[in-house]
């Protein structure tokens, strides 16, 4: 009995990890380019709404996913234009994007549909993937098979992100601009362009994260349904020092904490401290990272 409890908890954790992971994979590119992106939440919410709206009108989940990515890109482009071109403080511009997404999706939700059942009737969700052969294996089947399509995509994307970041020219440029923009510029790389590109990548992946949330996990859209997951993704990025593998681990820990707190809630126990842990851990690890950096710096300067 205890075993199945644990297994289903793990399955729930994996489901809850995906939206955070997708958004964090996007955000780590802006982080590597040294652009603090607090708009993950808003871009994700826009993607979530778009997925539901497009699925409702076209009855195609593929179209819905593509449209979410597109809208994520558009939001990112607006953010990028204001941050990179018009020199708005990225914290402020990001906050505006979040506020806009939250207000405008709620506005459209109420303008397009009069009630919830009207919306959910026409929706085509993202299908679950049953892995043939594996689905009948007792433990592994339950653990690895039957998740929504984008769950698998998100795992593939961890490796893609790792590859792009460390093995391609674009990844090198993003990291270079993040570390020393002047040096990158002197080598003929336009830092603004790279920053904009990194913001666009984050937008596309946040769109995907939103699509998973609304059309993969729930098959409906509710107001502010991202519920802070974009900020969780931000925490995860800092937690994992913007490294794809570490970020994946961090995202899973957040997913696990969420799953455990849901369990506790369902039996009436206080779940608040469990859900708090990842945030506390992020703050602590941030401080530890900066202390280490400071130590390394003082060591370097004392050597020279």
């Amino acid at each position: 009995m205890a075993g199945t409890f644990n297994l289903s908890l793990l399955v729930a954790a994996i489901r809850l990890t995906t939206p955070i992971l997708l958004a964090a994979l996007g955000g780590l590119f802006t982080q590597q380019a040294n652009v603090l992106n607090i708009a993950l939440e808003g871009m994700m919410l826009s993607g979530a709404f778009t997925a539901v709206a497009v699925s409702f009108f076209t009855h195609s989940w593929v179209m819905a996913i593509l449209a979410s990515v597109l809208v994520g890109l558009i939001m990112a482009w607006i953010l990028g234009a204001f941050v990179v071109r018009f020199k708005a403080l990225n914290v402020i511009a990001g906050m505006a994007v979040n506020l806009f997404a939250s207000g405008f999706t709620a506005f459209l939700l109420r303008t397009i549909w009069t009630n919830k059942s009207e919306m959910t009737q026409g929706l085509v969700g993202i299908p679950d993937v049953v892995i043939p052969g594996l689905c009948n294996v007792p433990v592994l089947g339950e653990l690895l098979s039957g998740y929504s399509f984008l769950v698998y995509i998100s795992i593939v994307l961890v490796f893609v992100a790792q590859f792009v970041l460390y093995k391609t020219k674009l990844g090198l440029r993003i990291r270079a601009v993040g570390e020393t923009p002047q040096a990158a510029a002197s080598l003929g790389v336009d830092p603004d362009r790279i920053r904009l590109t990194s913001i666009l990548i984050s937008g596309a992946l946040c769109g995907l994260a939103g699509a998973h949330l609304s059309l993969g996990a729930l098959c409906m859209f509710t107001e502010n349904m991202t519920a802070g997951r974009g900020f969780m993704a931000m925490a995860v990025i800092f937690f994992g020092d913007a490294d794809p593998y570490k970020v994946a681990i961090g995202a899973f820990l957040f997913g696990l904490a969420e799953a455990i707190s849901m369990r506790l809630q369902s039996v009436g126990l206080p779940s608040h401290f469990i859900i708090m842990i990842p945030y506390v851990f992020t703050v602590v690890s941030l401080i530890v990272v900066s202390i280490n950096k400071m130590k390394a710096q003082t060591r370097k300067s004392s050597e020279s």
């Binding site: 204001f82 071109r85 018009f86 020199k87 708005a88 403080l89 402020i92 511009a93 906050m95 505006a96 994007v97 979040n98 506020l99 806009f100 939250s102 207000g103 405008f104 709620a106 506005f107 109420r110 303008t111 107001e223």
Partner: peptide, 22 residues
């Protein structure tokens, strides 16, 4: 719907924060 006003508030913030001399 009143949420329209939230969107407009966001637009105000964005335009105030931007530096169009850029």
């Amino acid at each position: 719907p009143k949420q329209l006003i939230d969107s407009l508030r966001a637009i105000i913030i964005l335009f105030v924060a931007a530096d169009f001399t850029g």
